[in-house]
């Protein structure tokens, strides 16, 4: 039986005033390699300031539609309380944006974290909720920025404006009209 390794969800922060937002996922054997794979898959181009990865199996997701019909009483809670990160999809307009980090709650299970998240952050205008225990999240360090993220700046040839095709065409046209 083949293994493609477990899946880790990836959260990327692109600007100082933006929250971490879900970029997609990577497959990796462990959290450290997940962080590295996230860098190589999602930071081929500038700009990234910070990356988080979390095992997909640790993320509890609910859409607004699921939330409407969910019976909270059916969910067992563990004995110990711990911090959970809360993410929301807040808009249907920004085509590239899925869930973004909005804050934290304390809870004894994923489902309890979800119910606290809804209470604390409000359910109006939220299309998808994610909660994930904070301990399951591996984060890049401030000191990683130069080695992990700055190198994408040295590869301008990955950007479309590196290629002067409009100028080429203009030159071709002017030669043709001579």
């Amino acid at each position: 039986m083949d293994t493609q390794w477990p899946r880790y969800e990836v959260f990327e922060k692109e600007r100082p005033d933006w929250p971490h937002r879900n970029a997609g996922s990577v497959h990796a054997p462990d959290a450290e390699m997940a962080l590295e794979n996230a860098r190589d898959v999602f930071v081929r181009r500038p700009h990234c300031l910070s990356l988080w990865v979390a095992p997909a199996s640790e993320i509890f997701s609910m859409t607004a539609e699921q939330l409407a019909g969910f019976d909270w009483r059916s969910v067992p809670a563990g004995p110990d309380s711990e911090p959970y990160l809360v993410f929301q999809k807040q808009t249907q307009r920004a085509a590239e944006t899925f869930v973004v980090h909005v804050g934290e709650v304390e809870a004894r299970s994923h489902a309890e974290a979800m119910s606290h998240a809804v209470e604390k952050f409000g359910s109006g205008g939220v299309f998808v909720w994610w909660v994930c225990p904070a301990r399951a999240v591996t984060r890049s360090e401030e000191s990683d920025v130069s080695a992990m993220f700055a190198p994408s700046e040295s590869k301008p040839y990955r950007q479309p404006h590196f290629y002067k095709v409009i100028a080429q065409l203009r030159e071709i046209k002017s030669k043709a009209s001579e």
């Binding site: 997609g24 181009r45 590239e96 944006t97 040839y157 950007q159 479309p160 590196f162 290629y163």
Partner: peptide
């Protein structure tokens, strides 16, 4: 969302070919 990311990156592919 995958397509939005891909289109943004694919534009370089097309331009380098042109």
């Amino acid at each position: 969302r995958a397509m939005v990311r891909i289109c943004a990156e694919e534009s370089f592919h097309n331009k380098q070919g042109k």
